[in-house]
Amino acid sequence: MDPAVVLRRAVDGDAGELLTVQRAAFVSEAQRYGDPSMPPLREDLDAVLAAIGEQVVLVALRGTRLVGAVRGRVEGSTAHVGRLAVAPDQQRQGLGSALLGALEEALPQGITELRLFTGGDSAATIARYERAGYVRAGESVDDHGTTLVHLVKEVGDPARTIG
């Protein structure tokens, strides 16, 4: 990844740019599945602000431009990874992988498992998660008939200390 990219916790002032990047990043997924009402495209500014306040939300900055983001929602010893988004013109440069790794490091002590899902027709996305250590844990179908692939990653000792 480019050393000029900075990864950090999101702040409220990032919400507008984060929402813009998220929408831009998920347009191709919406087209792939013929579903313009995917949750990442319907989310509003208030929901993004709530996520920043309640979850571990990281952003990637190239200079002053926000170019990527990811979220981790903690439930007990599990973190649910979501909304991994990289601006379309910044994709395939390692930002998504860097954000996933940084999220793992930023999660609170005691997290032993990461869970996420993605569309079943998103082969490149599934492969990216598998390269990052996630394994398939099953499938489900959403309310629009889209097959979702669920992936899990074990992250080790529950007593580890994350800085």
Rank of each mutant, 00 (worst) to 15 (best):
R83P: 07
V86D: 09
S122I: 02
T146N: 11
V57W: 02
V74Y: 03
R71T: 10
R42P: 03
A51S: 15
A124H: 09
G82I: 00
V74P: 13
G145S: 13
T64S: 10
A102P: 08
R92L: 10
V149D: 04
L100I: 10
I52T: 05
D35Q: 10
G120H: 02
D142S: 09
E104C: 04
L95A: 07
L103Q: 04
S97I: 01
R128G: 06
V56G: 06
P108H: 07
A79I: 02
F117W: 07
Q22K: 09
A124E: 15
G16V: 09
E130Q: 14
V152M: 11
Q22Y: 01
Q91I: 02
A85G: 11
I111Y: 03
V141T: 12
P158S: 11
H144Y: 06
G120Y: 01
R32N: 06
P108G: 11
G68E: 05
I111Q: 05
L99A: 03
R128I: 14
R8K: 14
P88Y: 06
A132I: 04
V152I: 13
V6N: 12
S140K: 09
S37K: 04
G94D: 13
G94A: 05
V27R: 15
R23C: 08
P3I: 05
D12Q: 13
D44K: 05
V135I: 08
A10I: 04
E29S: 13
D2K: 01
V48K: 03
A47P: 12
V81G: 04
D46W: 02
R65Q: 08
P39G: 02
G163F: 09
T125D: 10
F117T: 04
G68D: 06
L103C: 12
I111N: 09
D12R: 15
P88S: 07
V152H: 07
R65A: 09
Q93N: 09
R62F: 00
D89Y: 09
L114C: 10
E139H: 11
E75P: 01
A124S: 12
V86I: 01
A69R: 03
G16Y: 07
A85Y: 07
V135A: 10
R136Q: 10
E105G: 12
D12L: 11
A79P: 05
R65S: 08
T112L: 03
F117C: 08
L58N: 07
E54R: 15
D14H: 14
D2L: 00
A51M: 05
R71P: 03
P88D: 08
D121L: 15
G96K: 02
T78V: 15
A137R: 09
L18W: 14
L61T: 06
L151V: 04
G145Y: 09
V81M: 07
S97V: 07
L107N: 08
A47Q: 14
E75M: 02
V27H: 10
R115T: 14
R131I: 07
R128T: 11
L49H: 15
F26W: 15
D44F: 06
S37Y: 03
V86K: 03
T20G: 11
S97D: 15
E105V: 01
D157W: 02
P108D: 06
F26H: 14
A85W: 08
D142C: 07
D14F: 13
L99F: 03
D143E: 14
T161F: 09
S37R: 05
D35N: 14
P3E: 15
D2C: 01
G72D: 02
R62I: 00
E54F: 01
V70S: 01
L7H: 06
M38K: 07
L49I: 10
R160D: 13
R65F: 01
T118A: 12
D12I: 08
A10C: 13
